[in-house]
Design a protein around this nucleic acid. Structure first.
Length: 572
RNA sequence: GACCCGGUAGCUCAGUUGGAUAGAGCAACGGCCUUCUAAGCCGUCGGUCGGGGGUUCGAAUCCCUUCCGGGUCGCCA
């Protein structure tokens, strides 16, 4: 739970600030950072801010800082200090640091706390993610929500939070009026039975086509939805059926991705709670009529629509009902909505309405937004039938990994099983490696490219290590520490010591990409080491040290991959 | 039109509180498998950090302005 570099950084900053304040009777902010280049040391202190505060010549200050560091308690960890221009570069004693890092790692591993922290202990976070729309194709867009949400949930749990995972199914709304209308008027029950989602989507797209010719259809569909909200038994039965078959389809994808939820309560389960919301808004004088609909006026931003002119509820109304239900049910500290960028306004409205209602938790409502999946630079749309099916992409990735295996390791056992793990992990990693708010141009070639910064690269690195470690057992009590003096070996140790800090940062920023990039860097260090150093050597002291190092790298890689929702494999 | 994102190498992207010579991968080209898995490693090529101005000892990072791309903006979710 302690990261070496990070604590040292803090310690040096605190020490220098305290000492300088004592000496000059003024508060001087000190910056401590990790230099980019190896010859610039392990930590660096740019002294410009100190020079400015004290108005003294730069060489004098650099000498002073160097002197203070050598006199301080931390000097036992310091090998030597260089001064380069305005930078005081601290080089640590590699063996002393290696000892510390290994000791910390071993302790964390034994306590099953690798990468763990306790910053979230006692706090509950409710997460709303995946949330596909019933009777619609599970698209690449929903994939983003699913895997980003899943990874963030894992990261938060690692930091000690209690996480409640909710799949807020889009199982209510005007769209069902359209689908039910279309099904009843020109749907083919046999076809729908055979191929539910595909046929329902066809009906939906078809409806929009016909609507262009006959605007009256929209009115008809609204009437059907109204009937649904008024509990028309025929409509309800159809709705239930559509929901059932859709969910079955989605579960296949969740199984493949290894994703699970604590609740599948969709929008429909909040319809009966919207009356209470409307009453409360009315009682608080927030609800006003406008053009026949009921809205909450939010001043400088677009108003929130609460009730349509025909009396039916809206997405926003059900969202409010769900929010208050969750607050009562789980008493969350934060609620995270893993939903695309395009709904930014919606969540701003949600916060504003909660604030206007007089509650104290609008700041705990967090929109974890992510970029759109674009096609030809434009948004995909179910309505226009312009959508990429996730299952097709997954299958493509799996068959691609199968052909890789046939190419590179034809004798491998359980080819199909492993190909599945490689393919799905590749898709997951391909999404998570980039910062989530960036838009995402859909490109199948990129997704199934397995070279370079990819999921298979991480898995391959772990597999390589497994294969080496299988050659002989490690005796970690008999190691030659000179191994850690190697630049790349030492970099790996430093990187390992940053694991927990990386997870905390990724969790704090709800950004799995931070962990993904970290894992890539660690894997790349190992592969570089592997390329230049022979690992399985005769000398047992040297071998033990190298094996220990590899063991640590693999432990971190595997743990990190699992957090991202990827599968760890032993052979490929 | 208003508001919100984004613009860094041919392509996909990193770049933490402003710090040293802006980094990876892909693609291209050249090397490395009789020894630990070549899904790898090493090297070469590739940059007006969209443009302009400002703040600063120091700006890809902060401020202003402008151009370009995308998204959103009352009865869809």
């Amino acid at each position: 739970m302690i990261t070496m570099i990070d604590t040292l950084k803090q310690d040096i900053r605190d020490y220098l600030e305290k000492t300088l304040e004592a000496r000059f009777q003024q508060v001087i902010p000190v910056v401590v950072e990790e230099p980019k280049k190896a010859d610039q040391g392990d930590l660096s202190v740019p002294v410009f801010s100190i020079v400015k505060e004290l108005r003294q010549p730069l060489p004098l200050i650099t000498q002073l800082v160097k002197q203070l560091l050598l006199e301080g308690e931390l000097s036992t960890m310091i090998d030597h200090i260089d001064v380069m221009g305005g930078f005081v570069n601290v080089h640590f004693d590699k063996k002393a640091m290696a000892d510390q890092i290994i000791a910390n790692f071993t302790r964390d591993l034994l306590n099953n706390q690798l990468g763990s922290s306790n910053e979230g202990v006692g706090k509950t976070i409710v997460m709303d993610y995946s949330s596909p729309n019933i009777a619609k194709t599970f698209s690449i867009g929903h994939l983003r929500s699913t895997i980003i949400g899943h990874a963030i949930g894992n990261l938060l749990e690692k930091c000690g939070y209690h996480v409640v995972r909710i799949n807020h199914l889009g199982d209510w709304g005007t769209q069902f009026g359209k689908i039910i209308y279309a099904y009843l008027h020109y749907g083919d029950p046999a076809k729908v039975e055979a191929n539910p989602i595909e046929e329902l989507v066809k009906l939906y797209v078809d409806f929009h086509e016909r609507e262009k010719q006959d605007p009256n259809l929209e009115v008809e569909a609204r009437a059907v939805f109204k009937g649904l909200e008024d509990r028309n038994p025929q409509y309800l039965a159809l709705w239930e059926k559509f929901r059932e078959v859709s969910l079955q389809e989605y579960m296949k994808i969740y199984d493949l991705l290894g994703v699970r939820f604590d609740s599948y309560a969709g929008e429909a389960s909040y319809v009966d709670k919207t009356d209470a919301i409307i009453e409360e808004l009315t009682a608080k004088g927030l609800l006003v009529e406008d053009q026949g609909a009921m809205i909450v006026d939010l001043g400088d931003i677009a108003p929130a629509l609460i009730q349509k002119s025909d009396g039916t509820t809206l997405y926003f109304t059900r969202e409010l009902a769900a929010l208050f239900f969750r607050k009562r049910e789980y008493d969350f500290d934060k609620v995270l909505y893993v939903v695309g960028n395009e709904q930014k306004l919606h969540f701003e409205q949600l916060r504003r309405v909660v604030d206007k209602m007089g509650y104290d938790f609008p700041e705990d409502i967090i929109h974890v937004n992510f970029g759109l999946v674009l096609q030809d630079g434009k948004k995909m749309s179910t309505r226009k039938g312009k959508i990429v099916k996730l299952i097709d992409v997954l299958e493509e990735a799996i068959s691609m990994s199968l052909s890789y295996i046939g190419d590179k390791n034809p004798d491998l056992e359980n080819k199909e099983e492993i190909a599945k793990k490689i393919g799905t992990s590749a898709i997951i990693f391909n999404d998570l490696k980039n910062y989530r708010v960036n838009d995402f141009e859909f490109n199948l070639d990129d997704m199934v490219n397995f070279n370079g910064q990819t999921g298979p690269y991480l898995q391959y690195t772990s597999v390589r290590i497994t294969s080496i470690l299988a050659t002989s057992p490690i005796d970690s009590s008999r190691i030659n520490e000179d191994v850690f003096l190697d630049e790349v070996a030492f970099d790996m140790l430093k990187e390992i010591s940053l694991y927990q800090d990386t997870i905390s940062r990724a969790a704090r920023e709800f950004a799995p990409s931070i962990l993904a990039k970290y894992l890539l860097h660690l894997a790349s260090l190992f592969n570089s080491y592997y390329g230049k150093e022979r690992i399985v050597v005769e000398d047992s002291m040297e071998r033990n040290a190298k094996f220990l190092l590899l063991f640590m790298v693999r432990a971190v890689l595997d743990d990190g991959m699992k957090l991202l929702g990827m599968q760890v494999i032993e052979k490929m």
